[in-house]
Design a protein around this nucleic acid. Structure first.
Ligand SMILES: [Mn+2]
Ligand SMILES: [Mn+2]
Ligand SMILES: [Mn+2]
Ligand SMILES: [Mn+2]
Lengths: 220, 220
DNA sequence: AGATAAGTTTAGGTATAACTAAATATTAAT
DNA sequence: ATTAATATTTAGTTATACCTAAACTTATCT
């Protein structure tokens, strides 16, 4: 059991998330953008992470996360998402308020704490943004889901997650009345701009731009 | 509102605790002992804390915490103790398990988090070790209390806190059946070694060495 | 292919927070 | 009042994690 620093945990989490999105090697620039830091700093860190065997690093060709690295990343993600559930369910934070605080809480080092927290929360399977919570071994139950923008007219489904979980986007969804768990039906799609009209819970008609609909994930 | 680093918060908390115990200037060596570090490292840090105006520092003559410094220290102590209550009340940690984890949690920077946590816990006034929880302005309600070793024969009272909150001591108290809230009566005091015999909750007779009784605090 | 652009790494520097060893100041003892 | 003991600070070093500027590698374009 290696001990990673806060910075190392953050980099590893970012590398994991980027490599989940696209399948190939993760580039220095992409990591720098995700971490809001400079490519030169990333190069420094990649050498460190490589020495700790949590990534495979070939200079100039981007990095791959190792199996061991993936375990550490998923552990951090597990903590992040469990804390998010805690903040929303127990402390009544809104889903747009939790991310920053969870980014700090995810680094608290105590196996028993996370075990107890999980138990206390009733072993939740998804966080407030619909993202799956890895179990203590790092196993994630992926749910098949696709962007709302890709549902056909008259197609139905349930909102299960968001792709963008920025505060601005989440507050916008609150405003229009979209939320996780909502049952939806696509009433109309505008060919011209890709915007959609949907019916929420068989009650409320709402409009979404293609941009917005692309960031709302649905299970059919 | 200055931002203190984790290390600065820890030093300031230690300095506050030491200066509460004895009234005069806090020495470099005492801080080093409390922080489990070297005097040379303490000297470095004192210069930093002095620049930030949270302590008054005259070389070779120890330090005094400023009013502003006290506010920061009490804020950290507030967070520490609230988290301890959370761990015990909600996550069912035992009172000997909470200190380490709280030492990490106390540095999480989010005013709203602490406000909500306080509310969620029902605005507790004392932590699991009987120590008072400062309010959001740093006000502490001190409870008059004295070591059990100083109670006269036939004197009664209630255990309200412990002076030593090391895991070993707390587990020992668990074992003999002493706990916070217990009503006690001193049945006998042995002149020779200062040990005491006490009656707990009008039921159970227990023995304590002078050492132990000196670390159990009672309200009469 | 050769030149240029884009991406990445290296070199050198800063800030924090430790450490050891040496120097210096204060306090206690003779 | 010196000297010795104790306490404290300074000097110099290390490790982490950033930065800018310069050098270098790879990819792209004509
Ligand atoms: Mn998040
Ligand atoms: Mn989330
Ligand atoms: Mn504690
Ligand atoms: Mn406590």
């Amino acid at each position: 059991m290696k001990t990673l620093t806060y910075a190392e945990e953050n980099y590893l989490k970012a590398i994991y998330h980027i490599s989940e999105a696209g399948k190939k090697g993760v580039s220095t620039n992409d990591i720098a953008a995700a971490m809001q830091t400079k490519p030169a700093s990333v190069s420094d860190m990649l050498r460190k992470l490589s020495n700790k065997k949590v990534i495979e690093y070939r200079k100039y060709y981007g990095v791959h996360i190792t199996e061991e690295g993936k375990k550490y990343a998923l552990q951090t993600i597990r903590k992040h998402r469990l804390w998010e559930v805690f903040l929303v369910e127990k402390l009544h934070f809104t889903w747009d308020e939790v991310h920053e605080v969870a980014d700090e809480l995810e680094h608290i080092k105590s196996a028993i704490l996370i075990q107890r927290l999980d138990e206390y929360l009733g072993y939740p399977k998804f966080d407030p943004h619909g993202d799956p919570i890895p179990d203590e071994y790092g196993d994630v139950k992926a749910r098949p889901r696709l962007p709302l923008s890709e549902i056909e007219i008259n197609g139905t489904g349930q909102i299960v997650a968001v792709k963008d979980s920025s505060a601005a986007f989440l507050r916008y969804l609150d405003k229009v009345g979209a939320y996780i768990g909502a049952r939806i039906k696509v009433l109309d799609k505008v060919e011209f701009d890709g915007s959609v009209e949907i019916l929420v819970d068989n009650k409320k008609k709402i409009f979404m731009s293609r941009e917005v609909a692309g960031n709302v994930l649905v299970m059919v």
